[in-house]
Nucleic acid binder design. Structure first.
Lengths: 363, 363
DNA sequence: CTGAAAGCGCTTACAG
DNA sequence: CTGAAAGCGCTTACAG
């Protein structure tokens, strides 16, 4: 929660305007004001090509004077042949990344007069039922956030019905499906390099859920970074996790109670890194003085714990926006009769250094 | 992340249907199929009153046979006089409750053919700018999640422009603004009673950010519960917090390092309870054997930490749904020329017992 | 209680 | 390059 400090005195607000503008501004108001036909206005606001600069200018002026806003609903009715009905099928509504995906996606889809449908599913059976509901409501495309982004059965069912699919934040792009993602390999490599640059050589790694595609890819990035630095991997410093806090607890306990203790723990997501922090705390190991801990994803927990986590930031909201834009374009192309190739869109990640990492402790 | 276990073999999916149904089912298709006028269909799908049972039945049959889905966009154009443009003004996109509010709100608004606008703001200046953006885009109503739900300046600005406002999850309803909330007082009271029932008498409390309305109200609920049980409040067992994890860390350290140690800590939100857990862990105090910890809100962190938190569950998604439904109704009434009184809607909370609480330790 | 007509604000053909 | 006409699928008056 953000602290918003403000005057407590509830000063009486001005007399409320009883009547809001009775009728919203339409394309015709703009046309009249600009002295052109409504079609010209329609062309300008859509960004169509065939408009003379003079006309365009007049219309744009009128739009800004009148503070005209397109009525997306009306637009949708008519261009319904082009407007997309896009579903987001999610399984974990409390996952902190979901709100950001939705914020981004919704922003984009309302800009584009698209229609966003949210469908939730629980478990495997629920997944099938949710897909059928989505299908029944006539979606043109479905965005799959993790972990559904890697569910081949779901994807196949959707594709079989001619629905466009986009896998969001998968680590392994598929040939027949578009995706928006970061480079998990490069992210893990960058983090490993940073740890090495801080002087760490005794670096432990906590792997994620073996069923999720980022798990292996991030581990490979870590291995590459270690190999590059000429550091051998110790089996007892590679712990298995499941991306959950609880699994991170167990993994970190193993790592910190072993015969030799690493100077850094690279957990392959933030939840597990937060758990490592708690375990270190329990062992009276000061972070980052005696131990560096870092995570991956930059979800809410990264800035909730103390010290805050050094981690790899995924631009989740932007990924949501991009996903909606891409899938809408693909749907449009498909409706126009094209057979667009799946688009694999890579976004930039950022290594964010916060309080949980520091130079290797002196011996 | 939910583990979705599934067959790995990517069995080739059936030949994709090249063409989706060219034309979606309309109200007229249903009318023809049912042998009635389209107006009757319209009435049935809207749930209007004046339809004979016989007609209704025929229409409903046709709807289900044809798998008809209302075209919300089309509906919105016509009932645009009634359809609402509702904004959600939020300040903390990574807050885990936000995704649930949005999921709920979006579900509801797409059912109602409403239009949901998301507007984000940062800081106080950003808050004003965001309100102006919302105003410029012609919103009819704005939903304010915490902590903006208690921002009088924002509310006043909105009201002054004739915009309907709904405060979501505020602890102090305002006379001139609708709200959807739980009873924070009763929630804190229920939790305190539960702790007492478990045999605890040495109960510490961690307060929240003094600028947020739930802070005082939850504390009052705690005081009432203690008074009811005839337990005196010890000043050194009431710690100040800010609803953040970090503040919880400091508060819990004070509580657990004091001369006398409580057998239970009631933190007034989950983030601070999670912090208390970490501190207990650091002090080798076993939870719940030696110490009971409980929180409030049932946000994502409550089930992320270990042991999972006993807490008061707020039905956030349902609150989002309800908020949209209520504000839409209020907007409709206002547009119809009424002056509806603000609606104060109270939702039920639930006390959820998980692993972090248990009976008082034997002496 | 039922339905034929008119219209929501926009865009897609269609003429200039 | 520009605009008058028709229509998107639904709902709001308006007649029976």
């Amino acid at each position: 929660m953000t602290g918003t400090r403000e005057t407590k005195a509830p000063k009486r607000h001005a007399t409320p305007k009883a009547d809001k503008p009775a009728r919203p501004i339409t394309i015709h108001d703009v046309a009249r004001h600009a002295g052109v036909g409504s079609m010209t206005v329609s062309r300008v606001i859509r960004g169509a090509a065939n408009v003379s600069p003079a006309m365009r200018e007049k219309v744009e002026a009128a739009v800004s004077v009148l503070n005209y806003q397109v009525n997306v609903a009306a637009r949708a009715t008519r261009s319904q042949s082009t407007a997309a009905r896009i579903g987001i099928l999610y399984s974990n509504p409390s996952a902190s990344y979901l709100s950001e995906i939705m914020v981004g996606g919704l922003e984009q889809s309302s800009k584009m007069a698209g229609h966003l449908l949210l469908e939730r599913c629980e478990g495997l059976a629920g997944q099938q039922a949710a897909v059928e509901r989505l299908l029944a409501s006539g979606v043109d495309g479905v965005i799959l956030p993790p972990p559904l982004c890697d569910s081949r059965p779901t994807i196949n069912r959707l594709l079989a019905e001619g629905v466009t699919v986009l896998a969001l934040a998968t680590a392994r792009p598929m040939d027949d499906v578009s995706c928006v993602r970061i480079d998990d390999y490069a992210g893990a490599l960058a983090m490993t390099r940073r740890l090495v640059a801080l002087g760490h050589r005794d670096i432990a790694f906590i792997k994620g859920d073996p069923l999720h595609t980022p798990t292996e890819v991030r581990f490979e990035g870590f291995l590459a970074g270690m190999a590059e630095a000429g550091i051998a991997i110790r089996d007892d410093w590679v712990a298995e996790g499941l991306f959950t806090y609880r699994s991170g607890l167990a993994a970190a306990e193993t790592l910190l109670d072993g015969a030799a203790r690493p100077t850094a723990i690279f957990a392959s997501n933030d939840d597990m890194a937060a758990a490592a922090l708690a375990v270190a705390h329990g062992r009276q190991i000061a972070v980052p003085r005696d131990l560096t801990v870092c995570g991956f994803d930059d979800t809410a927990v990264a800035t909730t714990v103390w010290p805050e986590l050094t981690t790899i930031h995924q631009p989740i909201a932007a990924m949501g926006r991009t996903a909606v834009a891409l899938i809408a374009e693909e749907i449009r192309a498909r409706k126009a009769g094209d057979a667009p190739a799946p688009n694999h869109h890579l976004m930039k990640f950022t290594l964010i250094e916060r309080g949980s990492s520091g130079p290797v402790p002196e011996r």
